[in-house]
Amino acid sequence: MEYIIIIISAVFVNNIVLTQFLGVCPFLGVSKRISTAVGMAGAVTFVMVLATIVTYLIQLYILNPFNIGYLQTISFILVIASLVQLVEIILKKVSPALYQALGVFLPLITTNCAILGVAILTIQKEFNLMEGVVFAISNAIGFGLALVLFAGLREHLDLIDVPKGLKGTPIALIVAGILAMAFMGFSGLV
């Protein structure tokens, strides 16, 4: 039951992009076409879950015992950066097909604040490892959902006659605002 609450809350109610504003850069950057959006969502899911597990273990077995919690930011970002590199190298060798699909998005993920954000939130909310993993997966799903929905809307935007000044990013942001408004409808669900 607890897991279901975590999932619904992370995917809909507190959607990571549309209500918490984490990962807005890739949300705006790679949402021009649905196919790239799906690729990015896949890559983020993969790295987010791995990063959450690794950073959780680091917090539990290194930062807490030695009482060096203030090194959290530095150690987490280093772990994430090297993890992304590692994933890239391994994928290239083990599964070239998957690497082809996710490859271009992987380097971008280091500076995706959703990854670091979820890692820190998992610690702040005092989840155990299993809850942390569920939290990471559902946040990744929430990210993917918002990204794919937004990409779908943006594909249509190209065909619509918008006022000249609003073309491009401004209208995309306004559409994102309306999408965020739609997600506000979920508040109170949990």
Binding site: L18, F21, P170, I174, A176, G177, M184
Partner: peptide, 22 residues
Amino acid sequence: LLFVLAPGAFIVLGYLIAISNK
């Protein structure tokens, strides 16, 4: 209240970027 909440952020920023382009 909408403008303090999440959707307002996107919408206001959208218009600000349009103005700065102009």
